[in-house]
Simulated assay, not measured.
Amino acid sequence: MITDVFMELAPRLPLRIDDCQQDSETLYLGGPGWSLRISGPWRLSKSEVIEASNGAELRADMAGNINSVINSEIVDIQPQSRFNSLDIALLMRDGRVLEVFSDYIYDNWLLTFQDVAIEGPLQSSEQQ
């Protein structure tokens, strides 16, 4: 079940972000004992203001804004929205939220720990 995934993640929190890299199509985040690869759309926001997104990072005037997450802590991981539990939202201690959007089967994300890897978009057992 999808809820089991979020229950599995809860005891692993908080996650410190020590590394952030982006190429033209993929965002990489990581810290001690974990990493996240996002190869689809994402956005970083706080108080309903978008601070960075995969498209905006390609613009010269916004490039590098995502690097502001370095030294932040992820304190919660939840479904991306109440309507869709396929993707994740990472809630940071400072109130920012990194949302992931899988808009195509190849736009996926992979959250890896030393003992487990979770790949999204998440699928319920009824859909497989």
Rank of each mutant, 00 (worst) to 15 (best):
Q22L: 12
D23Y: 08
S24T: 14
T26Q: 11
L27Q: 11
Y28L: 14
Y28D: 08
Y28R: 15
Y28A: 13
G30T: 05
P32G: 09
P32Q: 07
W34C: 03
L36F: 03
L36K: 05
R37L: 05
R37V: 07
G40L: 01
P41A: 02
P41V: 02
R43Y: 06
R43I: 00
L44V: 02
L44G: 09
L44D: 05
L44S: 12
S47M: 06
E48Y: 00
E51R: 13
S53N: 12
G55C: 08
A56C: 02
M62E: 14
A63S: 15
A63E: 07
A63T: 08
G64I: 12
N65L: 08
I66T: 05
N67W: 07
N67S: 09
S68F: 00
I70T: 15
N71P: 00
N71V: 00
S72I: 04
E73Y: 07
E73G: 00
I74E: 00
V75E: 06
I77S: 10
P79G: 12
P79I: 02
P79R: 04
S81E: 04
S81H: 07
F83Q: 13
S85F: 13
I88P: 00
I88S: 08
L91S: 11
M92L: 15
M92R: 15
G95H: 06
R96N: 02
R96I: 01
V97S: 03
E99S: 15
F101D: 04
F101R: 06
D103P: 00
I105S: 13
I105H: 04
Y106C: 04
L110G: 08
F113K: 05
V116M: 15
A117Q: 15
I118W: 11
E119H: 09
G120Q: 10
P121D: 04
Q123I: 05
S124A: 14
S125A: 10
